[in-house]
């Protein structure tokens, strides 16, 4: 983390919410009222993020959210979401399916909010990309078997299957589908892209396709890719600090949030002094007006109507090839 942002000295205060949304809300309040912070950033969990967004709106503090909650600027005027929106990510999958003539899609996902999010993204993109979602099967991460769901998908014989799980949880349906002899492509989502997924799935998950941010495979990006230099630099620094192979999307979100701030602060500092409500308001306005901030995940150009501002450059498709995630060419 840089020591100064936009010429202003920065102090980072880190609190732990223990993945508890109530704690997250309390912590945010503490940071704002006691520590008088100018900006709040954080939480990799959706429920916690929503809590913090509430507090941010109440106290009129800019908030950089690290989960892809769908931020409506009219509702959460002070919240900016750093990660790629689900529709953007799944759009890459939809595009790939269209290019490969997929007309029917089987869906199997977690029986929780993440599964819903994935199902909604997959089915809402269907009309535009010319496919129909034919099953909506659900399973829990702790399930010991998905035979029933998989049989139902096989009976519907879709051209491709989208798995709405995350991490190692995505491996169970994939392995079951392969074991039952499913021959179509199996797509995952950005929550599944980690090394553990491959470790658990082994040979059976070869060929799994998933969208992700470019910082997972910066080495393989074409030289003219907008974020190549930044992504590569970030993974190098991160793995130097935490060990080879530790790169992940979440660390990139924090990095990009700081970069966004770095771009917005000089503008805000012209209008008011840090530590005042005027500065917080100016910072919020500046965040809506920064353009082409190149982060590890993509190029950010947030606007008043879009508090995320990422475009297609923030996503790549990766595929499991001989035991690692590789960029799809």
């Amino acid at each position: 983390m840089p020591k100064t942002l936009g010429g202003q000295p920065v102090k980072y205060i880190i609190l732990e919410d223990g993945s508890d949304a109530t704690n997250a809300g309390k912590n945010a309040r503490k940071l704002i009222t006691e520590d008088k912070v100018d900006v709040v950033m954080g939480s990799n969990g959706v429920p916690s993020s929503l809590q913090i967004a509430q507090v941010a709106a109440e106290t009129q503090t800019p908030y950089l959210c690290l989960t892809p909650i769908a931020v409506k600027p009219e509702q959460y005027k002070w919240t900016f979401s750093v990660p790629q929106p689900t529709e953007l990510m799944m759009g890459a999958v939809a595009e790939h399916m269209k290019a490969n003539g997929v007309k029917s899609v089987g869906f199997i996902g977690f029986s929780d909010g993440w599964g819903d999010l994935m199902y909604n993204a997959t089915s809402s993109l269907g009309a535009k990309y010319g496919y129909k979602v034919v099953t909506n099967e659900r399973y829990a991460r702790a399930d010991t078997s998905v035979t029933g769901q998989v049989l139902k998908i096989m009976a519907a014989s879709p051209d491709a299957v989208v798995v709405g799980g995350s991490g190692t949880g995505g491996a169970l349906p994939h392995v079951a589908l392969v074991e039952r002899g499913y021959k179509g492509r199996i797509y995952h989502n950005h929550g599944t892209v980690n090394a553990e997924f491959i470790k658990v799935g082994g040979k059976n998950v070869e060929g799994a396709i998933a969208p992700t941010g470019p910082l997972i495979v910066p080495e393989e990006l074409p030289a003219n890719h907008a974020t190549k230099a930044v992504s590569l630099d970030f993974t190098k620094r991160y793995e130097a600090a935490f060990g080879a192979g530790t790169r992940n999307g979440f660390a990139g979100y924090s990095n990009d949030a700081v970069m966004l701030l770095g771009a917005a602060i000089p503008e805000a500092a012209k209008k008011a002094k840090p530590g005042t409500p005027e500065f917080r308001a100016a910072l919020r306005d500046a965040l809506e007006n920064v353009k082409n901030v190149i982060g590890a995940h993509g190029v950010y150009s947030p606007t008043a109507a879009n508090h995320n501002g990422l475009d297609e450059r923030a996503r790549v498709l990766v595929r499991v090839e001989s035991g690692t995630w590789r960029l799809m060419k």
């Binding site: 399973y139 998905v146 029933g148 769901q149 139902k152």
Partner: peptide, 14 residues
């Protein structure tokens, strides 16, 4: 029961 309900209504299996 678990295996049949996962076929018919997977979201309500548990």
């Amino acid at each position: 029961l678990e295996s049949f309900s996962s076929f018919w209504a997977s979201a309500f299996k548990e």
